[in-house]
Structures are given as C-alpha cells and as structure tokens.
Simulated assay, not measured.
Amino acid sequence: MKIIIVLILVGILVALAAAGLFMLKRSGKNKPGGMARALALRVGLSVALFLFILLSYKLGWIQPTGIPAGR
C-alpha cells in the first residue's frame, strides 16, 4: 500500500518537473502543449491518488492513526 502511494507521489513530482522543464526551454524544438500535457498528467495523478486513498479507507485496507478527531 505504501509503495503504491509513494510511486504515485513520485509520478506527480516527475510530471511537475517535466512541466517546469517545458516552461524553461525556449527553443522552438518543443512540442506544442507539452507543458499543458505534463500539468494535466499531474492533476490526473493527484485525483487518482486521492480516490485511491479514499477507496482504501472505505475498504479497510488502511486505518487512521495519530491525533484523534474532535479535539
């Protein structure tokens, strides 16, 4: 479970770095829409991670720990 979450987080960071590189490159060799595609991938991975964590909680694969709610 932790491995899947870490892999998705790494994917989000890689997509963000790719968007930054597309933004910094000023040569005309870039594919048009490369930065937008990388940012769309980052948003998609973030939504997928949120839904995966929510589903995992609902199915009982993960349990909340730490500070009790309501304090």
Rank of each mutant, 00 (worst) to 15 (best):
L45G: 09
L45W: 04
A19I: 09
F50W: 08
L13M: 15
L51P: 11
R26S: 06
L24H: 04
I3C: 05
A15L: 09
W61V: 13
V47E: 07
M35S: 15
P32V: 00
G11S: 06
L54M: 05
G44V: 04
K25N: 15
A19M: 01
S27R: 05
S27Q: 00
S46P: 00
G11A: 09
K58H: 10
I67V: 15
K29Q: 09
L45H: 04
I8R: 06
M35L: 08
G66K: 05
A15T: 15
G60E: 07
P68S: 14
L49M: 14
R37N: 11
G66M: 02
A48L: 14
G44S: 12
V6F: 09
T65I: 10
G34D: 07
A15I: 07
K2V: 02
G66W: 00
L21K: 15
T65C: 06
I3N: 09
L45C: 06
R71D: 08
S46N: 03
M23S: 10
R42K: 10
I62A: 07
A19E: 11
G34M: 03
G70R: 02
K31M: 12
V10R: 10
L45E: 01
L41T: 11
Q63C: 05
L16R: 07
L54H: 02
N30D: 12
F22E: 15
V6Y: 08
A18M: 07
K58W: 13
L55T: 06
S46D: 01
L45M: 11
L13E: 12
V10W: 02
I53S: 02
A38E: 12
